[in-house]
Amino acid sequence: MTTPFRVPTVDISAYVGRGTAEERAAAAAAFDEAARTVGFVQVVGHGVPTSVTDAFAAALDEFFLLPLEVKKQYRTPPEVNRGYAPPKTESLSLSLGLAPSNRMHDFFEAFNIGAAVSDHPGLDLPEADYPENVWPAEAAHFRAAVSAYFEEAGRVARTLTTLFGDALGLPEGFFERFTDHSLDVLRMNNYALEPGELELDGDLTGMGEHTDYGIVTVLWADQVAGLQVLGRDGGWHDVMPADGALLINLGDLMARWTNERWMSTLHRVKPPIVDGRVDRRRSAAFFHDGNIDAVIETLPTCLDEGGTAYAPITVGEHIRAKLAGSRAGVANTDAGREAARVLAAAQA
C-alpha cells in the first residue's frame, strides 16, 4: 500500500525560546525524519510576527503592481543576483542542465535583495558575489518592510542550522564557521500580470523544475495552488503552506554535506489558469547559502559503507554554476543526480 504524500509539520519553538533538552531533541528528530523522507517541512513555532509578514505582503503588492516599464528600471545584468527580473527572462531548469533549446521561459517576475559587501566591513568580500542592493524609489514602504522580513527569515534560517547540528549529531556551533558571512538572498516572486502583457502559451511554466542551491530555504507564500514537489513515488504533488507556517526545504549543499541522507527535493511552480489568466500567487524564498569561500564536503558521519561521497566544492563554485544556468542560459553540467530524477519523473 502506497503512503499518501504529506509534508510533515515540525514545531521549532524549543529552539526559538528556551525549550528543554528533551523538547529540542524531539524537534531535531522530527526534522531529521522529514528531511530524510520528504525534504520539505511545514515549520511552526518560528516566532516571525504576523505584523512583519503582513507588512511584507503589502510591500510586494506595492512593487509588483507598478507599471512594467517602471519595474524594468531596476533590472540588473544576469550575473548580478539583485534587483528586478521580468517574466520569461529565466529558466530554473537550466540550473540542472535541463530545458528545451535553452529557452528562457519561466512565467514569473521577481525582485532580489541579499547580503552585501557593506554588511561585512573588514572581510574584503568579492562584490560580484555580495553586490549592493537596489531599492525601488517608487515604492515608499518597500525597503523598510522587506528589510524587516529579511532579518526575520535570516533568524529562522540560523535557528534551523542550530537544529541541523543537533539532528546530525555534530558539535555545537558546527555550521557557524560556514555561515558567518553567508550568501543570503531573498527572492520575491509574482505570478500574475495585467492582461495583454504576455501571451499565454500552451504548457505554461511558472517556474521550472529545480532544486534549491544552498543550505536551507525559508519560503513564505500565499495559500494558492501552484507549488509542486516531486515525491519518491516519481509524481508531482501540490503543496501550500499551512496556517501560520513557513515552508522549509533543503538545498544542494545540504544534500552534499549529508551525502543525500537529507534530500534536496525537486520542485516547480505550475500556476493555475483561470479564464485564460494566471491566478495570482506571491511567494518569497530566503536562500541561506553559506560563505562564498566555504568548502562543502561530505560529513564523516554521512559516508556510506563504500566511502562514496560528493567531490568537495566551494559554495561560490556551486552557486555560480547554478546561477549561470537559471539567469544566463548556460546549462549546468554538474547536476547529473538531480537531472536524472527530473527525467525519471517526466516518464512516470
Rank of each mutant, 00 (worst) to 15 (best):
R36F: 03
R268S: 01
M240S: 11
A14E: 03
P272H: 11
F108W: 06
R320C: 08
Y310P: 06
T89C: 10
G45R: 08
A21S: 15
K88Q: 14
T89D: 02
G19P: 02
Y191K: 05
Y213A: 06
A25N: 11
W236F: 13
N81D: 06
A30F: 06
A225Q: 05
S182C: 02
P300G: 01
I273V: 09
D119G: 08
L160H: 04
E69Q: 10
N249A: 06
A167I: 00
P100I: 15
D124Q: 12
P272I: 02
R232A: 03
F286K: 05
R337S: 15
T3S: 10
F142D: 10
P131R: 10
A30M: 10
L266T: 09
L227V: 14
K270W: 02
V7S: 07
N112S: 11
W135D: 03
G251W: 02
P126V: 04
G307H: 02
R143G: 09
I292V: 11
K270H: 14
P49A: 12
T308Q: 13
Q73K: 11
L230Q: 05
V134F: 04
D54F: 12
D203E: 14
Q42M: 13
D201T: 07
P131V: 08
V224I: 05
T50K: 06
E317H: 07
S326T: 09
G83L: 01
D334H: 10
L198D: 06
L227W: 09
G202T: 15
A346P: 08
D124W: 12
T159G: 10
A59V: 07
H237I: 04
D129P: 09
R337H: 15
M1F: 07
A324V: 11
L198N: 00
H237R: 04
A339W: 05
G173E: 01
A148C: 10
R280N: 07
R75P: 02
E138F: 07
F56V: 11
L68F: 11
D289S: 14
Y130F: 02
I273P: 01
G316A: 09
D334S: 14
V52H: 08
V269C: 08
E176G: 13
F107C: 05
L343Q: 04
T298D: 04
P136W: 00
A116N: 04
E197R: 12
L253A: 11
V52S: 04
A85Q: 00
T9L: 05
R143H: 05
I113C: 06
L323C: 02
L94G: 08
I248E: 13
D212G: 01
T298P: 07
A57H: 13
L343D: 04
M254Q: 06
A145R: 03
N189F: 08
V16R: 14
